[in-house]
Design a binder for these strands. Structure first.
Lengths: 252, 252
DNA sequence: TAGTGGTCTAGACCACGGC
DNA sequence: CCGTGGTCTAGACCACTAG
């Protein structure tokens, strides 16, 4: 495909396709600098905005990344593997290690932008939790930064009455994390539901995750159920899609 | 956020933020037409390309959609729910109904662009299947169109030797689909792994799924294992991210 | 047919990065 | 410093859609 058919494509698309073909052919590898706007203007005899638009195609497809003052570079894709099911098996958090240490090998994970507040349940949260909007909730915000790159934003909602007085209301939830604390107060999560979708980030999300153009986010909304079917936590996560592969393993 | 701080934002960003705020405030609802390029030029006293850039922000965030000759319109988000685990429970395909009918209620699902060919295993497929690259595979391509909107592209790889002579090599695999046929030849899938990621589509993917700008795709790579741990199928799916929510339900 | 968005040109000034 | 990409202007022609 992309052959020499007389499809009457726009110029910028033809230039973009040529660059993509060169990347596929290995003429440019991950991290290499692509021809800049000026190069393309000379080579194809087009105006600045047209060359710019061609490079914009590669950026909006997540293939390339512009660095101001330096050039446009080929991106690479080396995602983390997030095992959705095994990571929540009881052995992981029952034993006292952080859930997150299951994900990472030889990498530096920093949790920052932590805040724990009590506020009223937003409407969509209340609906899932089965409570009234405005019901007091313990809201935990966190950002996870792996090797200096932010990869995940997390917002966790728990019923304020349920978790009052536990370490869940503190920034450091202690060994085993939130789920170990829930187990200690008789609200052990026994069932989980994860809903996954993807969209482009808003400006604030892109800033907090330091996303370059053309990178979507993955949204995971996890609901944790105790053994009476009671919802004990709702966790909304925003992931850099270029940093993650989610894995779900299950039997027929 | 987006307060009146003297952040010295670009004009197009300020215009875009104003439009987004108006949408959030309910001044424009899903399907409504937004102010066009000419409107913004008049209202803000900017050049054509700047107004255009502002509208481009909303489009690249998936908030709005341009319709040529008509205007720029607010998009909506009414996704399908795809239950990753229950839908592959044996009751679903063991009973003879199509797996896909489990997903849809009162909607017209059309499967088109079907092709079944035999070709050599691509390198990445061979690696997962544990065979040599070029090993003959049965390759099934399909496109799923729901109520006239393409939502999913599927490419399925099965060992050619295993499925030779079965309905799997025909376009219509018969009641219960591929998995029912595999069960009949003693290669019943008992375990599945789904790997999920997201990125922006390439031009061909966007065309086949009729995606508007600012819509990512979700990639699902599903591996089906028979009871000896043997891989019997690898299914690569490309989903319109604006059409789907994936759901995974599991116990701790 | 009138108005819309899609493409394109030929300039301009700026902020930032590497040298 | 000089080249890079980021923003912006003021025009132009086109294809498409709605009325």
């Amino acid at each position: 495909m992309t052959g020499s058919s007389g499809d009457k494509q726009p110029k910028y698309q033809r230039i973009a396709d040529t660059l993509k073909a060169a990347i596929d052919a290995g003429q440019y590898c991950a991290g290499d600098r692509l021809p800049g706007e000026n190069d393309l203007m000379d080579e194809y005899g087009v105006a600045r905005m047209t060359a710019r638009q061609a490079l914009g195609v590669l950026q909006s497809e997540g293939i390339a990344e512009a660095r101001r003052g330096a050039g446009v570079f080929v991106r690479d894709f080396r995602p983390l593997r997030r095992r959705g099911i095994q990571r929540l098996a009881q052995g992981q958090w029952g034993s006292g290690r952080s859930i997150w240490s299951a994900d990472i090998d030889n990498r530096l994970l920093v949790v920052d932008q932590v805040s724990v507040t009590e506020q009223g349940a937003p409407e969509h949260v209340a609906r899932v939790l089965g409570v009234d909007p405005g019901e007091p909730m313990c809201v935990r915000h966190r950002r996870f930064v792996l090797d200096g790159k932010p990869v995940l934003l997390s917002t966790s909602y728990l019923p304020a009455g349920l978790v009052a007085g536990t370490a869940i209301t503190r920034e450091d939830t202690g060994p085993g994390g939130t789920y170990a604390r829930l187990a200690e107060i008789g609200a052990k999560p026994v069932h989980f539901r994860e809903e996954v979708r993807s969209r482009m980030p808003g400006a604030e999300e892109a800033a907090r995750l330091e996303l370059s153009a053309g990178t979507p986010v993955i949204l995971i909304c996890r609901t944790a159920f105790a053994d009476e079917g009671q919802v004990v936590e709702l966790n909304e996560m925003i992931l850099d899609a270029a940093s993650y592969v989610l894995e779900y393993d299950f039997d027929a």
